[in-house]
Design a protein around this nucleic acid. Structure first.
Lengths: 160, 160
DNA sequence: TGTTAACTGTCAAGCGCTTGATATGAATCC
DNA sequence: GGATTCATATCAAGCGCTTGACAGTTAACA
């Protein structure tokens, strides 16, 4: 640990390669917060033998049953192949099932099984607890404010 | 898109597997914001032939010259092997150099070369622009508030 | 002084994801 | 109706990272 390792003296024209506040930027704080929260989530879910990626996939299908693999890939920010791999594993566990699409013959709908719903219920209880611990100090209004700010950042970054 | 795909009727004892607000949680908003910002960063840095991971590594060493690989791994949230791989590549480009540690013979210090500093300077200009675009709508006080909230979440998640 | 403990760095193997390419089905345009 | 375009799913190869294991170095301790 050496917070003042870089000597900040008088500024010449372009002597300073990067701003001195580079480690205090929003994107860095964002990254660390996501690491901390997702890491905690992963750790807690491990007691159920479930990865955080599996939880995210299941909950997406829970709210939008019949979702297609490609659409799921977009929401989870991964490639369709990665989704296919996850789906195959979850299907093997009997938590997920693939049904033929009513209109498109080549497309497959994804649906939760009863076992999948039960696993999701247990997992969500743990995730809710993680969420509670993470936002404990912020209070309800602080949490709502944080969420709103994050949405603005997301929107701004997406349309840039 | 089917926002109301899940029918929310009267609640029985434990009929609802997960809370209806699951997709509005902070951790999900956090994840999407990070995806959006980091993705934009990656996209912009690609014009310089630099990956976001390389930028993060270089800027860490910039502020703490002589950093060790293991310490760097902790800060970047990856394994020491992953750092070694990145370092090898950056060293091959002449942007980084490994010097013997003054006290520990087996340990190697990491330092930026002049080329590394120049590459970092160019990259940081792009990152600053990304940061500006992402926080444009928030204003200075909104940005500061967001950063403070994120730090609280990080701290809470880490100590849980 | 020898021993233990802690930390660093590296090798090997495996896994998950990505990029690239291909095939199928469906909708649109002429 | 046939050709074009688009979207989904899947196969193959490659890459980056992780887990697990091991060796070298230093400091703390009895």
């Amino acid at each position: 640990m050496n917070p003042v390792a870089y000597s900040r003296g008088v500024r010449h024209d372009d002597e300073e390669p990067v701003g001195a506040d580079a480690l205090d930027r929003v994107s860095w704080a964002l990254r660390q917060a996501d690491w901390a929260v997702q890491g905690l989530k992963e750790q807690r879910l491990r007691s159920l033998g479930m990865a955080a990626a599996h939880y995210a996939l299941l909950i997406c299908i829970h709210f939008d049953p019949g979702l297609t693999g490609a659409e799921l890939a977009r929401r989870l920010n991964v490639t369709p192949q990665a989704v296919a791999s996850l789906v195959a594993r979850l299907e093997g566990r009997g938590q997920l099932e693939r049904r033929p699409h009513p209109r498109h013959r080549h497309v497959q709908e994804l649906h939760l099984t009863d076992a999948g719903r039960e696993a999701l219920r247990e997992a969500d209880a743990l995730v809710v607890e993680v969420e509670r611990q993470a936002t404990e100090k912020l209070g309800p209004e602080g949490t709502a404010l944080l969420t709103a700010l994050l949405r603005q950042v997301t929107e701004a970054a997406r349309e840039a």
